[in-house]
Structures are given as structure tokens and as C-alpha cells.
């Protein structure tokens, strides 16, 4: 029931009037990926807004993009499809979408052109066009989003196509038991969990959702680990160290811990695995390399298990 659990976590995260309104702002933002500073405007206090945005990112409703220290927050397909109407203010349910591309036609044609280029290796123009039209139809159901329809459609169609281009990254509301997301946890989220996450990401792309967290996160990646990841061409797959929250664990179906012991909240239904791996912090380059090798071996084994499916 992986996806119902994620959906439940998403609903819980969005069961807050402020977050619904904030999501509406993100969804309708012209840049499509506003930063917390931008959303807070000139009022200065960003703390609450960052907290809300991060909580939404924890359950895959927002994706952090751009500079990791001042990320932009981009709504995911889940956010648009599942909560777009609720956040923006859905029109009362009608029998079916009434689609009239009208003056949006030119814009939509341009979106089709761009996406056809972008996905030229995977999809033909007809497929892209069908997806854009369908996405437009789904979103056009709500009168209140008309103004933003072209931008939302472009984003939504892009996310759906990207999900399709990767093997099983789709959303399965019927409740698939396949593990589709893994959370790597270590103490500082600056070494072991970063290596593991970068390795898994490099192997699976978007097929499995990969996240990391630390029980007491460091301010930045361990320099030795960063160098080692760079040497392997994986440094772009690391992230800024983040705190471990119950929310993150709740939205994960598999949790791999590396030395964080009791600090990791244990919730029923998740699969927990503990890897006894040394901490590479402050170790010599050779040691870091050896530790990275060990973690990457374990990631290969883990991926084989995930691909083999549930017991």
C-alpha cells in the first residue's frame, strides 16, 4: 500500500489552511519555482514559510530546484493533480471537463513544440500532443485556474511525460506494494546517506524516489565525501543536509539507517534496514574511497531486492 500511505501523508501535510494557500501561490507563480524569500515578499520573516515549504517537499508535493541554499520550490505532478483544485479553489464538480483551448491554442501549440523537442528520444509528437491536450482537459475542469491554465498545463504535461519516460515511476492509487521510494538516514546527512543516495540516483534516475536525512544534520556536505563523489561524477546527485522528521519517514516505504540508532522514528509498515557502515567524516581519501565502495555495493544489492519485488 505504498502509494496510499504516501497519499495519506500528503493529505495530512496539506490539512492546513496556510499550506493550501501557500501551495496556491506556488502553483500560480509566474516563475513556476518561487523561492521562500520571494514568497515571503519584503516582510522578512521566512521561517514559517520555509517550514511549510519543506513539509510539502517532504511528501513529494514540492521539489527543490536551483541553488540548494536558496532553493526554488516547484510543484510536482502530485501537487498539481491532487491538490491543485483544492488549493486554488475548485469549481463545483461538473459532469466532465469542458475544454475550449480558445485563445490558449497558440500557447499550447508552443508547449507541444517544446515538449516534442525535449522528449524526442522517447515520444512522438502525437503522443506529446495527446498528453498536453489531456492535461489541459484535466485542469480546465476548474474555472478558477483558467488564467494559469497554459502554464499549469505545460508543467503538468512535462511531469507526466517525464514520469512515463522512466519505467515504473507512476502513481498507483490502487496501492501497489512495490517499493518506489527509499530514505537514507545517517547522523549528519553529510556523508554516508549522501553517498548511498547519489549512488542509487545514478542507477535508477526517476524510477525510485530517493531521499536523505540526518538525525543531527550538518551544515554542509563533508568535504572528503564531496571530493569522492566528484571523482565518481556523482557530486551533482547529493543534496544539502536535512533534518530527519517523522513526516519524511511517514512518506517513505523503505528506510535505510546508517549509524543513527534510536534517533530514527520507527513507524509501523515501513521496511527498515540498518547498514553498519563506518563514518567517512574526517577520514583519509583512501578510507573515504573504501567506505564509498562498500556503500555502493550495498546499494546495488538493495536495488536488486527492490527490482525483485515484494516477498
Amino acid at each position: 500500500m505504498t502509494d496510499l500511505r504516501l497519499l495519506a501523508a500528503q493529505a495530512a501535510a496539506m490539512a492546513d489552511p496556510d499550506r493550501l494557500r501557500l501551495l496556491a501561490l506556488v502553483l500560480t507563480d509566474p516563475s513556476s519555482q518561487p523561492t521562500a524569500a520571494y514568497l515571503a515578499g519584503s516582510f522578512g520573516d521566512q521561517v514559517a514559510i520555509v517550514r511549510h515549504l519543506e513539509a510539502m517537499a517532504d511528501v513529494w508535493l514540492l521539489a527543490r530546484v536551483g541553488d540548494p541554499h536558496t532553493p526554488g520550490y516547484r510543484p510536482t505532478a502530485d501537487a498539481i493533480v491532487r491538490f491543485g483544485g483544492a488549493a486554488i479553489g475548485a469549481a463545483p464538480y461538473r459532469d466532465g471537463p469542458v475544454v475550449d483551448a480558445g485563445n490558449h491554442k497558440q500557447l499550447m501549440d508552443r508547449v507541444v513544440d517544446e515538449l516534442t523537442d525535449r522528449f524526442s528520444e522517447t515520444f512522438g509528437r502525437e503522443t506529446v500532443e495527446r498528453f498536453v491536450r489531456e492535461s489541459y482537459g484535466l485542469l480546465a475542469d476548474r474555472a478558477s485556474v483558467q488564467r494559469y491554465l497554459p502554464a499549469l498545463t505545460a508543467r503538468f504535461a512535462t511531469d507526466r511525460l517525464a514520469a512515463l519516460a522512466a519505467p515504473f515511476n507512476g502513481v498507483d492509487a490502487s496501492g501497489s506494494k512495490t517499493i518506489s521510494d527509499v530514505l537514507f538516514v545517517c547522523v549528519h546527512n553529510s556523508g554516508r546517506s549522501q553517498i548511498a543516495a547519489a549512488a542509487l540516483r545514478s542507477l535508477v534516475g526517476n524510477r525510485v524516489r530517493v531521499r536523505t536525512a540526518g538525525s543531527t544534520p550538518a551544515g554542509m556536505l563533508d568535504p572528503g565525501v564531496r571530493d569522492e563523489l566528484a571523482r565518481r561524477g556523482m557530486d551533482r546527485l547529493a543534496e544539502i543536509p536535512r533534518p530527519l522528521t517523522e513526516e519524511v519517514v511517514r512518506a517513505s516505504s523503505m528506510v535505510v539507517t546508517m549509524g543513527c540508532g534510536d534517533a530514527c522514528p520507527v513507524l509501523p509498515g515501513r521496511r527498515y534496514v540498518d547498514w553498519p557502515v563506518e563514518d567517512p567524516a574526517g577520514r583519509s581519501p583512501d578510507d573515504v574511497r573504501r567506505i564509498a565502495d562498500e556503500i555502493i555495493d550495498r546499494v546495488h544489492v538493495l536495488l536488486a531486492e527492490i527490482d525483485a519485488g515484494p516477498d
Binding site: M14, R21, A24, G89
Partner: peptide
């Protein structure tokens, strides 16, 4: 709400929606 949190959704609507989400989460 913080000034930045104002959106087209009215406060009442947002609270109503949040209440439903809470129940179905």
C-alpha cells in the same frame, strides 16, 4: 496568515478543505 499566504482561496474555504484533508489522511 502571513501576508504572503493570501491567495484566491478564502480563509473559510481553506479551513473547510483542510478539515476534509485531515479526516481522509
Amino acid at each position: 496568515p502571513h501576508p504572503a499566504l493570501r491567495s484566491t482561496l478564502s480563509r473559510g474555504q481553506a479551513e473547510d478543505t483542510a478539515a476534509v484533508l485531515r479526516v481522509v489522511s
